[in-house]
Computed example of a mutant assay.
Amino acid sequence: MMAGEFGVGVGEHAVPEGAGAADPPQCGIVLADRRRCAEASADGAPVNLCTTHLLVAYDWMAREVGVTDVLPDPCLACGSRVGVSYPSGTICARCEWRVGDIPDLAVADLGVDVVYYLRYRDQIKIGTSANPRVRVASLPHDEVLAFERGDRLLEQRRHVQFAAHRFPGTEWFAVHDALLEHIAALSAGVSDPWAQYDRWVSRQVALRS
C-alpha cells in the first residue's frame, strides 16, 4: 500500500470531533474522494487502521516479502514443510526450491529402497520395497514400526539375524526382545517413520537434480 493511495493521516490516533473519550479511534485512511474512512481502528492494531485497510496493507506487503505458510507436501529437495508464497509462485522457506520445478512423474518414478518393519497383532513383518507406500498399503498391519535404508540384501541379513523367531516360509517374526531392541534403535529420534521416508526421497531427488 502506497501512502498516496488512500491519503494521509495514518499513524495518528486522533479522536474525531464529537466522539466520546471511550470511543475507539477512527481509521486514519483518507479515501480517493477525500472522505475519511468511517470505520473504527482495529482493536490492538499498531496503527490506526480498520480491519479492511489492515488487510489491504497486508496484501500489498505480501507481494514484496511473501506469505509464509505450510506447503501442501514436503519440499522435494530438502523435506521442509514450510514455504513462502509470492504472486509468481511458491518456494521452500529452507532451501528456496521452487515448488513444481520437478515433474510429478520424475518423483513418482524415483525409488528409495527400504527395509520395513510392520506390526500386525503379535507378529512383526520384515520386508523390503522401493515403493513402501504401495507395498505397505497392500499388507495387513496395525502399525508401521520403522524403516531402514537398504535393499533385498539387507532384508536377507535381517531374516538371518532373527531367524530363530521366524515363522517358517514367511517374512513374519514373533515379537522378542532382540527384534524390539533393533527396531527401537532404528526409530530413536523418529516420531513418524513416513516423514523420515519422505526426507530420504527428497534428498534423492535433490541429488538427481
Rank of each mutant, 00 (worst) to 15 (best):
residue 128 T to Q: 12
residue 132 P to K: 10
residue 146 A to R: 06
residue 198 D to Y: 01
residue 193 P to M: 10
residue 140 P to A: 13
residue 150 G to I: 11
residue 185 A to S: 15
residue 167 F to Y: 03
residue 191 S to C: 05
residue 124 I to K: 12
residue 190 V to E: 08
residue 184 A to E: 14
residue 171 E to R: 02
residue 189 G to E: 03
residue 176 H to Y: 06
residue 186 L to T: 03
residue 172 W to D: 02
residue 192 D to Q: 05
residue 182 H to R: 09
residue 158 R to W: 12
residue 138 S to I: 09
residue 144 V to F: 02
residue 161 Q to T: 05
residue 156 Q to V: 00
residue 197 Y to R: 01
residue 182 H to I: 03
residue 140 P to H: 15
residue 187 S to M: 15
residue 192 D to N: 14
residue 130 A to K: 13
residue 186 L to N: 10
residue 182 H to L: 03
residue 128 T to D: 04
residue 176 H to M: 03
residue 151 D to G: 15
residue 193 P to W: 14
residue 152 R to W: 00
residue 175 V to T: 11
residue 139 L to K: 13
residue 146 A to Y: 09
residue 168 P to A: 10
residue 136 V to E: 01
residue 198 D to T: 09
residue 131 N to G: 13
residue 179 L to T: 11
residue 185 A to L: 15
residue 196 Q to G: 01
residue 132 P to Q: 09
residue 138 S to V: 11
residue 164 A to G: 07
residue 132 P to H: 10
residue 164 A to E: 10
residue 148 E to P: 08
residue 149 R to Y: 04
residue 130 A to H: 13
residue 188 A to P: 01
residue 125 K to M: 12
residue 187 S to L: 01
residue 196 Q to A: 09
residue 188 A to F: 04
residue 148 E to D: 12
residue 180 L to W: 08
residue 196 Q to W: 10
residue 138 S to E: 15
residue 131 N to R: 15
residue 181 E to F: 09
residue 126 I to N: 03
